[in-house]
Simulated scan of single mutants.
Amino acid sequence: MLVKCQRDALLMACQVVGTAVASRTTKPILSSIKAVADKNSLTLLATDLEVAIRYELKGISVDQPGEAILPIGRLVSILRESPDTEIVIDADQRRARVFTTSSEFEMPSEDPNEFPPIPLMEGQYHELSAGVLRQLIRRTAFAVGKDNTKYAITAILWEVEDGKARLVATDTRRLAVATGVANVEAGENKGHTHLVPVKAVQILERNLHDDLELVKVALRPNEVIFQTEKAMIYSRLLEGRYPPYQQILPKKSTAKIHLAVDALLSSVRQAAIMTDDETKRVSFIFHNKKLILQAQGATTGKSKVEMPIPYDGEEIRIDFDPNYVADMLKVLDPKDEVLLELTDGQKPALFKHGTDYQYLVMPLT
């Protein structure tokens, strides 16, 4: 394989595929990437056997087609340090050499036939615009659990039905549900539960650039494949049962309060200044056309922040971890409003943004 590449474009491509490279593995080849040169394109592949990515870099000068294994860490370092706009890669099964105008680097390589195969997009799929998909991911991924439990909450639940794609995430203390328009084939994915690892979804988000681009999503019983214009992301699905989130969402409330996103986020951040690790708590007091946010740390002091709101019902006091509220507000347009539905200070609070986004937060007791 002998190719000439634009340095910046290759560096960006290596950084994209590098997110799927195995950090710890008993197979040394998984610590590298596979490069396939053909005609005027260079395709880079990486996998940790659970998640994989195939990224196509076009506009490459290919003097000799072929395949090679490239050590990703050292290659990225070379590209970062080189002042050149173009670099040349000459690689085979024994070695990989990188040339700039003033430097030459040689690294050991491996047999590209030993690199695990990565499935291609085929069969049924549904489509979403990149803009819609990015929004769905941003509004849910932050709520995914960080630790394994008996529930498969380290994944995002992906549902498709009736022209809609729905993403659901929870860590058992909060629940985010986002829905967007999708082009769905009749009968697609009926009767299946799809638990997509958050790592795969985060890699997908990094590959969403043009809001109008259509992204293909093929959900299978044990795996999922995403296809963008330049990249294909593959992932195994997680096994397990997802919490019955539809039953958790409250159907009734005693108070419905419209709140400005920007003003609420600012107030929450101000009140949270006086919290500490032991008292990660802000009290939300709704009464007499205003919201009072109060916090007090064991050693840090206390805070009190007021903001006007359109509420004149009975007083409701409810305590939240301020980060859980701020996380949700940060993924919304600051100019928008959210509808907060409350029952009392002991039951979960439900934030709604339009008809396609719901965010449930458990109060601190």
Rank of each mutant, 00 (worst) to 15 (best):
K251S: 15
N148S: 14
D344Y: 00
V217N: 06
H194C: 11
L133M: 14
K4Q: 12
G313A: 08
I285R: 12
V338G: 03
T343M: 02
I285P: 00
R173A: 07
L259E: 06
E110C: 08
M362I: 10
I153R: 01
M1A: 12
A20S: 13
V181T: 14
D92G: 12
E229L: 10
Y151R: 07
P83V: 00
R281F: 04
P117Q: 13
S283A: 13
V305F: 05
N323A: 14
K39C: 06
L128C: 13
V88C: 12
F320C: 03
Q135K: 13
V261I: 11
R281C: 11
T254R: 14
G354H: 03
L264N: 06
R206M: 08
D211A: 15
A260W: 00
T355A: 15
V17I: 13
L30I: 12
R94T: 10
A35M: 15
L340H: 02
Q6S: 14
L133T: 02
D344N: 15
A35S: 09
I225Y: 04
L175G: 06
L175F: 05
H353S: 13
K58F: 00
A96F: 00
M121A: 11
L219E: 14
A37M: 07
I29L: 11
R97Q: 12
S267W: 01
K58E: 13
F320D: 07
A271R: 02
E185I: 10
Q294I: 01
V168G: 07
K280I: 02
T47W: 05
S253E: 07
I156F: 00
V62S: 09
G191E: 06
K164W: 01
P83L: 05
H126R: 05
H194M: 04
S267K: 02
A13V: 04
N222Q: 14
L157N: 07
K347P: 00
L44P: 01
P83Q: 05
P322F: 03
L214N: 10
L212R: 14
A91W: 05
I33E: 09
R95Y: 12
Q93E: 14
G18S: 08
T43F: 03
T179P: 03
T26E: 10
K34G: 08
S32M: 10
N183F: 03
E314S: 11
Q246Y: 05
V168A: 10
M232E: 15
P108L: 11
W158P: 00
R236S: 09
A298H: 08
T279M: 11
M328H: 08
M307V: 12
F142S: 05
A178W: 00
N288C: 07
H258W: 02
V62P: 00
K199G: 04
D319F: 01
E229D: 13
L291I: 05
D210T: 06
C14F: 10
P116C: 07
K251D: 13
K216T: 00
K289W: 04
Q124N: 12
S103K: 10
K251W: 02
P197Q: 10
